[in-house]
Design a protein around this nucleic acid. Structure first.
Lengths: 204, 204
DNA sequence: GTCTATATACAGATAGAC
DNA sequence: GTCTATCTGTATATAGAC
């Protein structure tokens, strides 16, 4: 790779990193193109040599994320989980939570983008159902095994996804008093046995 | 009240109603002042004879809602609930759900407004904790009674509120195949006994 | 108070020199 | 490819006639 291309790639990377920082601080909607270029130390016009629009930049960031995820998940098995097993539910939630929290800027951007389209567009509902597809399949598998689910797997999965994604968005970024593990543990217990807890039906 | 004032009040009411319709259809952020005035059959300039801004209009709509709620709740008792009682949890969720769904336009607007401020502003987290304050108090009461909660009442309450509000926002407005009662029932079962269901610990 | 017409502000996007 | 300078589109808000 030539030095010119290298400098260009450097600028593109700087813009991406700056965008991620800005999204996390100000949110996607509030972040202007000039905020990104200023934070990256570039001129406004340079942005459009690399991305056609703010939306295109977000798609590029999402592609990067998919690439990373593919690298990490490549070759891994994905066995059908029994979500009524405490360890397996906890593991499932932990993976989802860390995925969302570890890529918070992109999650924030996608969330705000879907929301800005308005409720009529149904894009938030679409995200919710798509992102919880695996979860839904596990629930359907449980139901087919004769387990008594609280209700329609699609809605239950969406409800769990709603809880997760909303919390991942709204919870303050750096909360010294509340660790990720603590949050995951609480959600796992709530979703496994509910408010009544595991000892609610001693009579069986 | 004179005829002039009456006509003015009529216009103000028309603007409010039009705004509610527009918020439900296009969302708050997407709705322009001109969308509201056009839907109300008035001129653009008339808007500012009644509201200083779109934000001021939303505050007025919120005030209307508070007034209605006050009228309905006036004189009602608010006893401490035992949320591990199926009927009481169901009732609590049903009230919250119908409050949100029955005033969907305003909920939508507040949600989008809080989100547009970005995550750094913490306004979504603020809404989440404020709106679930009563819930948190009930959970704290349970904990003081020695009941084993899944975790910190504030976070559990926020998680439940996150699930509720996100679903109330994202679920399609007119879903012929899924009634409010069905949704509330499913959420109540999920939050009471979790995915494991009531029969998970036959040994006590 | 309501209207038409217009001003203000600003973000997105482009043009052209280097 | 990067820069400075500028254009365009659009939403908010105001001015002034009726």
């Amino acid at each position: 790779m030539g030095v010119r291309k290298a400098r260009a790639a450097e600028t593109e990377a700087a813009l991406k990193e700056a965008a991620l920082r800005q999204f996390a601080e100000r949110g996607y909607l509030n972040t202007k193109i000039t905020d990104i270029t200023a934070a990256a130390g570039r001129a406004t016009g340079s942005f459009y040599d690399h991305f056609a629009s703010k939306d295109a930049l977000l798609q590029a960031l999402l592609a990067d994320l998919h690439g990373k995820a593919h690298d990490r998940l490549a070759g891994q098995e994905h066995p059908p989980h029994d979500l009524t097993d405490p360890d397996q539910l906890h593991e499932h939630l932990a993976v989802a939570w860390h995925l969302m929290r570890g890529n918070r800027p992109v999650m924030i951007a996608l969330f705000e983008q879907a929301m800005a389209a308005g409720p009529g567009a149904g894009r938030l509902w679409q995200r919710l159902t798509e992102d919880t597809q695996v979860l839904r399949e596990h629930l359907e598998h449980l139901r087919e095994s004769g387990r008594p689910l609280p209700g329609d797997p699609e809605l239950v999965a969406a409800a769990m996804g709603a809880m997760l994604s909303m919390l991942a968005y709204a919870l303050p970024g750096e909360d010294p008093g509340r660790s990720d593990d603590e949050v995951v543990g609480i959600l796992a217990r709530l979703l496994l046995h509910g408010l009544a807890g595991p000892d609610s039906t001693p009579a069986g």
